[in-house]
């Protein structure tokens, strides 16, 4: 289970990173979303992966660590708000600058204007 979980998180992170480094704002926003999913999965596993742990501690035996779940919940809420903001901002930038390049320039122009 651990390796499957790790591979999933890793692939999500890699995809997120690749998309975040793209030049257009839409892939960047999608990349950031994927990155935040990967981070949420990672946070969820930070207390260690166990199955059949008791939700409420009843003396002995294994129990599920409740803290990562609380943290993931916080991270999801914050990530959601941030994604919403980034989407609106990307749309605003598209409207104000006339194109969706993150530097606000057409791609062919960037080659000429690069100093």
């Amino acid at each position: 289970m651990e390796s499957l979980y790790a591979i999933t998180t890793g692939i999500l992170t890699a995809c997120g990173l690749f998309l975040t480094l793209r030049g257009r704002s839409f892939p960047v926003v999608v990349g950031l979303t994927l990155l935040s999913y990967a981070v949420n999965l990672f946070l969820f596993s930070m207390g260690g992966l166990t199955t059949n742990g008791a939700a409420i501690l009843d003396g002995g035996g294994s129990y599920a660590d409740p803290l990562p779940q609380a943290l993931v919940l916080t991270a999801i809420v914050i990530g959601f708000a941030m994604t919403a903001f980034a989407v609106i901002l990307a749309m605003r930038a598209r409207g104000d600058m006339g194109n969706d390049h993150v530097d606000g320039r057409q791609v062919d122009e960037t080659r000429e204007e690069r100093r």
């Binding site: 975040t20 704002s25 960047v28 950031l32 903001f85 980034a86 901002l89 990307a90 605003r92 930038a93 104000d96 600058m97 993150v102 530097d103 606000g104």
Partner: peptide
């Protein structure tokens, strides 16, 4: 807006 986009991302 442009500086803000970089800053936010």
């Amino acid at each position: 807006i442009q500086a803000g986009l970089h800053y936010v991302v």
